[in-house]
Design a protein around this nucleic acid. Structure first.
Lengths: 247, 247
DNA sequence: CGTGTTATTGACCAACATCAAACTTAGTGG
DNA sequence: CCACTAAGTTTGATGTTGGTCAATAACACG
């Protein structure tokens, strides 16, 4: 039983440790969660609005979003999820999905039966707190997006989102230097920020012209963090990461 | 000890019963929560961003919002709260407030020490679930607002918000007939929906001209619910109310 | 009544959307 | 290694929603 956790479990543990302090026993318990691994391809739905999942979905690899389709056929992306996230944790307490969840890249998910999570939660109140905290931070991020779409300019919004993904990726140790992977198309950025593809494109050109970022293929290089942060009116407090605003 | 719950406790219980099934024991336990009553005046802050509350705040009477002030001095209102809501339930698990909370009208709040909530939660797992569920629904509402601001027109957004407050008020038995109280100014509506005061005013005139609503003083009369619902692209599923989409 | 807040109007303007086309890039199969 | 294709990016021209500014009117309250 001295086996270390699998890389999938490790992702989950690493994620939770960015927002909560875990004991050895809790880490061991997490490492014992039954996971059903399943790869997904690009642009596929992991869950659809109206469904009632019986498992939670842990992202192990890839970029995932939650979204809604509105009347006029438009899409609003409401959140982005990196490896270690459990985007549909809410299904534990809300029977029916009020939105869909889809992949932006290919990747792998690990499914955990609700029963297993409940069992864990019964045995470790501190893990209940950690998971609850995770869902509260998720809500906090949504609120920050709401502010951005409601009151910030397109330039600020895009800079802000890049800052967010940068900081979150960094907390998960997914970054080398100032470069991080962000495999999102301009159309998807628009769906996330309430902008048209064309406008996203123009703003990105400005950000590059201002020497704030470089965007090569699927990865972004942050050229000037302080100015990018200012341009996005970004303050990481809303991410509630342990270790505070290390930036 | 055969005392019925106070009217303040009753508000809380009624609210929780719109989203979860409670046992007699749980209701009794809730009715025993220590409440520190405190009235508030119009336009006052109940909590400010950056603070670390040690109590949760139950709204007993009045209209309350959560908001952030952004760099350029603009305000974004992120949620509205009716009697029975606990807008800062999150403070239980997120130390520092990432936003402020203020009153839009005068009213009364009841403060519950975090310790009392934790104790309740330890003794009644089902209440933990109910409170967690409440915070998840709060997040769901925020996501719906996000969609609105991101992708819906000003007309749709305003109609949608009126629908939401109508349905939520009704679930809390705060409504007579088709009239409900909604003491919000046009400037505040703008702050909630990411619109300017002037534009809110013009859209409201359209809605009245279309005979969808009447807005007299502090109360709204819904003249044509089906058409209002359509105009707002409103589907109450995201509210996750028990009793389903009774509308 | 006076005073301050809220609602309403009008004129003008800017940010961003829409439409349509061309250009790049990354894969794919031969 | 070279077409061929589809997805994604870029560009230009044009339109519209909704913002800003500024003034007036309507209330509410002491």
């Amino acid at each position: 039983m001295a086996q270390g956790p699998s890389s999938e479990h490790a992702r989950l543990i690493r994620k939770l440790e960015t927002i909560a302090v875990l004991s050895d026993m809790e880490r061991t318990a997490l490492a014992g969660l039954p996971l059903r691994l399943k790869p997904f391809v690009e642009n596929s739905d992991l869950t659809r609005e109206g469904e009632a999942p019986t498992e939670c979905c842990l992202i192990v690899e890839g970029l995932v979003c939650r979204y809604k389709l509105l009347g006029a056929g438009q899409r609003q992306i409401m959140s982005l999820h990196l490896p270690g996230d459990i985007p549909d944790l809410q299904s534990l307490h809300l029977g029916v999905m009020d939105h869909s969840m889809g992949s932006l890249t290919a990747g792998r998910a690990a499914y955990v039966p609700h029963a297993a999570v409940r069992d864990l939660s019964d045995r470790f109140p501190n893990l209940t707190a950690a998971l609850w905290r995770d869902s509260l931070i998720d809500a906090s991020v949504t609120r920050e997006w709401l502010c951005g779409i409601g009151r910030r300019s397109a330039h600020q919004r895009i800079a802000h989102l890049i800052c967010e993904v940068f900081v979150r990726s960094r907390a998960l140790h997914l970054i080398e230097e100032k470069t991080f992977e962000f495999s999102i198309t301009q159309a998807e950025l628009g769906d996330a920020l309430g902008l048209s593809t064309v406008h996203v494109n123009r703003v990105l050109q400005d950000l590059r012209a201002d020497a704030l970022i470089t965007w090569r293929g699927k990865s972004i290089l942050v050229l000037d963090w302080p100015r990018l942060r200012t341009a996005g009116d970004f303050d990481p407090a809303y991410l509630h990461l342990l270790g505070g605003a290390a930036f």
